[in-house]
Amino acid sequence: MGLRERKKQRTRQDMIEAAIALFEERGFEEVTVAQIAEAADVSTRTFFLHFAAKDDVLFESADVRIDLGLQAIAERDPDERFPAVLRRAMDEMISNVGDDLVSGAAALRVRLAATSPTLRARLAQQYATIQSEMADALHKAFPDELHPVGAATLMGALVGAVSAASVAAIHRGDPPEDVREAMRLGADLVLRGVEARGFR
């Protein structure tokens, strides 16, 4: 990575850290983009070069995780069955959660969503996007094994289990690796039920 790219990444990280500190101190709804930019010593124009809105700071890795899940499905082995593909996809996505946990963004997101309609709506949108895109990719990859409704139901169960496990672990104050293990357990409980029906 060149000097220019490192500087760009540093600026982005400075804005994330500034936003998290302000959200912690004042609450999500009370903080403006201008305040985040000032705290990070950048212009509002620079902020908008990196993020479309202030809530994007708390969801900055979401698209990356979806892409990792879709890539795992797309790169499946010809003889691989869908439960195994889903295990690998979920593991790739969960492994990527690390930065959010270390930075405190994940824990803050959970806390702030309890009082912020904007963040609750964004979380619901994120879950819906994951479920829809993953279910569509899964059905297209395994059309003879998964009906569209079945694929959507399965992804709904997986996303629900993983998110509930992460919230419970975060509320307990678990360290990042324990939160990831809780998420893997949530996924495993759903997938073991699928495998018990005879899918491998």
Rank of each mutant, 00 (worst) to 15 (best):
A121K: 07
V167S: 04
F59Y: 14
D100P: 10
A141E: 02
I170P: 00
F142P: 00
F82M: 01
A164N: 13
V162G: 01
D174M: 11
D100H: 12
G150M: 02
L70A: 13
V167K: 06
D63S: 13
E181S: 09
Q71A: 13
R120M: 09
L68R: 10
V42T: 15
M90L: 14
H50A: 06
D99K: 11
M155Y: 00
A106E: 06
S43D: 14
V179I: 15
K140P: 00
V57L: 12
F48K: 11
V64L: 14
H147I: 01
V97P: 01
D41M: 15
A169R: 08
R122M: 05
D41Y: 14
E38I: 06
A135F: 00
H139L: 03
E60L: 13
D100M: 09
I130E: 06
R180W: 01
A40I: 13
L108R: 03
S103V: 05
K140Q: 10
V42Q: 13
V159K: 00
A137V: 05
G150D: 00
L68Y: 07
S43R: 07
R76F: 10
H171E: 15
E177C: 05
D63G: 15
S103E: 09
R65N: 03
D55T: 09
V85S: 00
A137Q: 03
D99T: 14
L49K: 12
L86W: 00
S132Q: 11
A106D: 06
V85G: 00
Y127S: 13
G160R: 01
E60C: 14
R109W: 11
L86G: 01
A106L: 10
A124K: 06
V42R: 15
D178T: 10
S43Y: 11
F48A: 08
V110H: 04
G173E: 07
Q125R: 13
S61E: 12
V149G: 01
E60V: 14
G173C: 05
A53K: 13
A152K: 03
A169C: 10
R81F: 10
Q131F: 00
V42A: 12
H50C: 08
E145S: 13
S163P: 08
F51L: 08
D99P: 12
V162S: 05
M134Q: 07
G160C: 09
L119E: 02
L70Q: 14
R45A: 15
T129H: 12
L101W: 06
M93A: 12
P78E: 12
R87F: 10
I73F: 07
A124G: 13
A151V: 01
P78N: 08
A137S: 09
R120C: 02
V42E: 11
A137Y: 02
T129D: 15
R87Q: 14
R120F: 02
V64W: 05
A113L: 07
K54M: 07
L58Q: 05
G150T: 06
A72P: 03
Q35D: 12
P143T: 02
T115I: 10
D174S: 14
R45S: 14
F51N: 09
R120N: 09
A168T: 11
A89N: 04
